[in-house]
């Protein structure tokens, strides 16, 4: 992939008639959404509507399971993410991911961050990178005196911030978050949300969440997904978050955000 040019589009990622298949089953259909730079985009919708599948298409994570394919395009910095010449491993460095359940490596806090950077060929001072990533993830003050301890010894909320720090270590442009706070208590959840506000200054964030209040609190733009008549998930409304939660245009969005869906 080429490096971004100086005159960049406001959209880091963009889908064009994106469909995602598991074998013959079209799990996601006809998605056309732009992901704005330095913004937090939330994807909401009922269970099984394809939110996580769509999210994983943004860094080609779906390909890790066999039989998946896409139709249409995903553009990253204006270029087709699924072009045969594009290396999916490189894609996942530039578009990082944080999962629902914190999954630190069974290694020290320090190594959790240094490991990926080292493999990726980081040549700078590793101590500085580790500190910088931990600071950006708002974790430094809590762990600076115990960097050699296992990452698994941290609390759930700290582990999730460690995973965010780990994602930052390879200097991504985009961070994808799949229900990053659903396994955390309310205080740890708010810390993650505050952290997202800090991170968006340097990164672009796309978050899948079941928690509508979280989407309302933390995101700038919201994509509402729903199953269509062919049982494929699709984006039925995409707008500024404040519009989605105060005056949605689609009746189904209204029913979902007011808790009357079903």
């Amino acid at each position: 992939m080429t490096q971004p040019s100086t005159e960049r589009s406001p959209f880091v990622l963009e889908t064009k008639d994106l469909g995602i298949f598991y074998g013959d089953f079209r799990a996601v259909a006809s998605v056309n959404i732009p992901i704005e730079r330095h913004k937090i985009t939330a994807i909401i919708g009922p269970s099984g509507c394809g939110k996580s599948t769509l999210l994983r298409a943004f860094n080609r994570m779906n390909e890790l399971s066999t039989g998946t394919r896409i139709e249409g395009e995903v553009l990253f910095e204006g270029e087709n993410l699924y072009h045969p010449m594009v290396d999916p491993v490189e894609v996942r460095y530039r578009i990082g991911m944080v999962f629902q359940k914190p999954n630190p490596f069974p290694k020290s806090i320090y190594e959790n961050i240094a490991w990926g950077a080292r493999i990726h060929g980081y040549k700078g001072k590793m101590e500085e990178l580790v500190e910088s990533c931990l600071r950006q993830a708002a974790l430094w003050d809590e762990v600076k005196d115990k960097l050699t301890q296992s990452g698994l010894a941290l609390s759930g909320g700290q582990q999730q911030r460690l995973c965010i720090a780990r994602a930052l270590a390879v200097q991504p442009e985009v961070i994808l978050m799949d229900e990053p706070a659903s396994a955390l208590d309310p205080i740890a959840t708010l810390k993650i949300e505050e952290l997202m506000q800090e991170l968006k200054k340097n990164y672009t964030i796309v978050i899948v969440t079941h928690n509508m209040q979280q989407a309302a609190r933390a995101s700038d733009r919201t994509a509402m997904m729903m199953i269509n008549h062919e049982r494929s998930g699709t984006v039925i409304e995409f707008n500024e978050t404040q519009k989605i939660f105060t005056n949605p245009k689609d009746k189904r969005t209204e029913d979902y955000v007011t808790g009357r869906f079903g």
Binding site: A216, F245, P248, E254
Partner: peptide
């Protein structure tokens, strides 16, 4: 009740 949309208005 964390009202949204019409409920909030």
């Amino acid at each position: 009740q964390q009202p949204m949309a019409h409920d909030l208005r």
